[in-house]
Simulated assay, not measured.
Amino acid sequence: MNLSDSDVRLKHGQITDTASFPATPARSAMPAWYADLLDSVAQRITTGRPRAIAAANHELLATYWGIGRDILDRQSEEGWGTKVIDRLSTDLRGRFPDGRGYSPRNLKYMRAFAAAWPDFTVVQAGLAQLPWYHQIALIEKLDDPDQRRWYAAAAVEQGWSRDVLVHHIDGRLHERCGKAITNFTATLPPADSDQAQQATRDPY
């Protein structure tokens, strides 16, 4: 029995009741310039992906810092407790049902984040290169501002994952390093690094 092209494609799951999906042409059938086009597009993706991740992470941290600052300011003025955060969490999740990151616990982390880094310019500069779960580790593990800054700078410079960051904090690496890390670098972590991958998984 001879099958039509449509029958063959249907057999391979390429035709549905509402749409037709032609078979992908062979690479050998492409024009001579196709390889250059493929390489050019792939290079744009390779270059743009880490920048897109960094930009999204920057906006996430700026938003979280702003929320934390709002909570701190209101608590300072009104003196209310955690029940307001619980109510705020419920209402935010009702208003933004598709959003993530508005649990009471995460709102408290935002408050702690703003308290730990009162100068927003620091957040905008080096800290914006670290994913949210790194920020939580710095908040939970370190009370000393200088140590927090040291480990944040080291994590940016070395591209540490959160687990590696926690390991070095627990091992008190700063006490064993003769040379202090004093500045955040401007280098973006590679798109396939643990740090970059964790940034894409952080809740918004």
Score class of each variant (00 low, 15 high):
His167Ile: 03
Arg105Glu: 10
Asp5Ala: 12
Ser40Asp: 12
Ala32His: 03
Arg74Asn: 03
Thr187Pro: 06
Asp170Thr: 03
Ala153Glu: 14
Thr182Leu: 15
Asp143His: 09
Gly99Pro: 05
Glu140Asn: 12
Ile181Trp: 10
Leu127Cys: 02
Ala116Ile: 12
Gly178Ile: 11
Leu38Trp: 08
Ala56Lys: 14
Val164Lys: 04
Gly13Ala: 00
Gln124Lys: 07
Ala56Trp: 11
Ala199Lys: 06
Gly159Ser: 04
Gly99His: 14
Thr16Val: 03
Leu142Glu: 11
Gly99Phe: 11
Met110Leu: 06
Asp70Gly: 06
Arg148Ala: 06
Arg111Asp: 00
Thr16Trp: 08
Ser161Gln: 10
Leu138Glu: 03
Thr24Gly: 02
Leu38Lys: 07
Ala112Lys: 05
Leu130Ile: 08
Thr200Tyr: 12
Gly13Leu: 05
Pro97Val: 03
Arg74Glu: 07
Tyr109Ser: 04
Asp192His: 09
Leu3Ser: 01
Arg105Gly: 12
Thr187Gln: 15
Tyr151Gln: 02
Val166Lys: 15
Arg162Leu: 09
Arg27Val: 08
Tyr64Arg: 14
Ala128Pro: 04
Met1Pro: 14
Trp117Glu: 01
His12Tyr: 12
Asp5Trp: 11
Glu140Trp: 00
Glu157Ala: 15
Phe113Tyr: 11
Asp143Ser: 10
Asn2Glu: 13
His167Val: 05
Ala35Phe: 08
Gln43Cys: 08
Arg93Pro: 06
Asp146Asn: 05
Arg172Gln: 13
Arg9Asp: 05
Leu188Cys: 00
Ala191His: 07
Ala62Pro: 01
Gln43Ala: 10
Pro118Ala: 05
Pro104Met: 09
His174Asn: 14
Asp202Lys: 07
Ser4Lys: 06
Asp202Glu: 14
Gly171Thr: 10
Leu38Ser: 04
Asp73Cys: 02
Ile136His: 10
Glu78Trp: 03
Gln135His: 03
Ser193Cys: 13
Asn106Asp: 11
Arg27Gln: 09
Ala112Trp: 10
His58Thr: 12
Arg172Asn: 11
Thr63Tyr: 00
Phe113Leu: 08
Arg148Pro: 13
Ala35Thr: 11
Trp160Gln: 08
Arg162Trp: 03
Val123Gly: 07
Ser20His: 09
Ser76Phe: 09
Thr63Met: 01
Gly94Tyr: 09
Trp80Val: 01
Asp144Gln: 10
Pro22Tyr: 06
Arg87Ile: 00
Arg9Met: 09
Asp91Leu: 10
Leu61Lys: 05
Ala35Asn: 03
Tyr34Arg: 01
Met1Trp: 13
Arg95Met: 14
Ala114Thr: 01
Phe21Tyr: 14
Ala128Phe: 00
Leu127Pro: 02
Tyr64Ser: 06
Arg100Ile: 04
Asp73Met: 01
Ala56Asn: 12
Val166Ala: 13
Arg51Ser: 07
Arg87His: 10
Val123His: 00
Pro25Gly: 02
Asp5Glu: 14
Glu78His: 03
Asp98Asn: 00
Tyr64Glu: 02
Gly99Ser: 12
Ser161Arg: 08
Arg87Ser: 01
Val164Tyr: 10
Tyr133Phe: 02
Gln75Gly: 04
Gly178Lys: 13
Ile71Leu: 05
Ala55Tyr: 15
Asp119Val: 12
Leu61Gln: 00
Leu188Val: 09
Leu92Pro: 05
Pro50His: 11
Leu142Asp: 00
Ser161Lys: 11
Ala23Trp: 15
Asp170Gly: 00
Ala128Lys: 01
Asp91Glu: 14
Gln14Tyr: 07
Thr200Cys: 09
Ala115Gly: 11
Arg27Thr: 04
Glu59Thr: 07
Thr182Ala: 07
Glu59Arg: 14
